[in-house]
């Protein structure tokens, strides 16, 4: 299929009626909760900026309009542009090739594009791929602004990725229950993760040394 529908009508009509499923088996139209979906398609940003977009236009929209991550924010629980564009991705269903461009080539340049791709991958990909695609960015310490109902806070890409891998709810969305890393290691689906900091035993040792006041100059 070379075209997308410009609006969301068919996407939403396909709810539960055999539209294409995401790679993790979920129906993309119902991954976000109903009240959130309704807030999104009602909001001005969605109507004005998310109509007739394709996978490349997503890049422009993120760069121009995504200044923070978050689900719904403020007293009005307004859906963030970040959340609206995640919903648009659920509608577009971009391929893995495209996601790699968002994550890597685009993600180096635009941190909010990387954050958006990480969020979308967590919602739609199988556990093994989620871990493999997201974990490299536990090394990305760039700052992200995050808005919630409570206000604005600072977070980081690595922290956001960690939230996606370990928390149940992120950005107004209940994440599907993914098997824990150690379970997938036991099943030999995943190799143990190697931290960019190196071997754990060495680290613990060097920490002890630092505490002893010997420092790193040994």
């Amino acid at each position: 299929m070379a075209n997308h529908r410009a609006d969301e009508k068919r996407f939403l009509d396909e709810r539960g009626s055999g539209g294409p499923l995401a790679p993790n088996g979920l129906n993309p139209a119902t991954i976000m909760e109903k009240p959130v979906r309704e807030r999104i398609i009602d909001c001005y940003f969605w109507k004005d900026q998310c109509f007739a977009l394709n996978e490349a236009d997503i890049v422009d929209r993120v760069v121009v309009h995504v200044k923070f991550i978050g689900g719904t924010y403020g007293d009005a629980q307004r859906p963030s542009p970040f959340l609206c564009l995640a919903f648009k991705l659920l509608q577009l269903g971009p391929s893995d090739d495209i996601l790699r461009e968002y994550l890597d080539f685009g993600g180096e340049k635009f941190k909010y594009l990387r954050a958006l791709a990480c969020f979308y991958i967590r919602l739609t990909r199988q556990a093994k791929n989620v871990y493999n695609l997201l974990e490299p960015y536990l090394e990305d310490r760039r700052k992200l602004k995050r808005k919630t109902r409570m206000g604005t806070a600072l977070t980081f890409i690595d922290q956001f990725v960690d939230d996606l891998l370990t928390k149940e709810r992120v950005c107004a969305t209940t994440l599907w229950k993914m098997p824990k890393r150690e379970i997938l290691e036991d099943l030999e689906v995943l190799e143990p993760r190697i931290s960019p900091l190196g071997d754990i035993e060495d680290l613990l040792e060097s920490d002890v040394e630092e505490m002893d006041g010997k420092g790193r100059d040994k």
Partner: peptide
């Protein structure tokens, strides 16, 4: 960042030990 990463490593390690 290093502090956050160390906390994650510690948490993972405890999870493995628990398992």
């Amino acid at each position: 960042w290093k502090l956050r990463e160390l906390r994650r490593i510690k948490r993972e390690r405890e999870a493995i030990e628990g398992r």
